[in-house]
Amino acid sequence: MMEYEVEERSNTLIIRLTGDIDLQTSPNVRQGLMGSIDKGRPIIVDLSGVDYIDSSGVASLVESLQTMRKKGKQFILVSVSEKAMRVFQLARLDKVFTICSDLDEGLKIVKGE
């Protein structure tokens, strides 16, 4: 139900999540994110395939963001759907995360353009 893909491009890990992130799937998402974080590269999470995210999914992303900040690495969310964006707004986290409209924009930020 939940797909987790990792692609490496210009020294950046691009993680594509597809499906609902809920109490059932968020443990896998968290595990995947933590694994990717260990690689020590900037991370872009593409949420275009995520129609639904709940508090446990948001919590996994928050935890990743905090870990990445400590490492001084960038952690960017891109292509956030309207529904998912609503949840970030409700959680007042829309200003905490770096959120870009699409992947290209995210990559530009990573490159410092």
């Binding site: 709940d54 508090s55 446990s56 919590a59 928050v62 905090q66 409700l90 007042r92 905490v96």
Partner: peptide, 18 residues
């Protein structure tokens, strides 16, 4: 407390928000 970004309590906050 929204300044304290931790997973716990977020769900209850969301419920009360909507």
């Amino acid at each position: 407390d929204l300044n304290d970004i931790k997973p716990g309590g977020l769900g209850t906050h969301l419920i009360r928000e909507v």
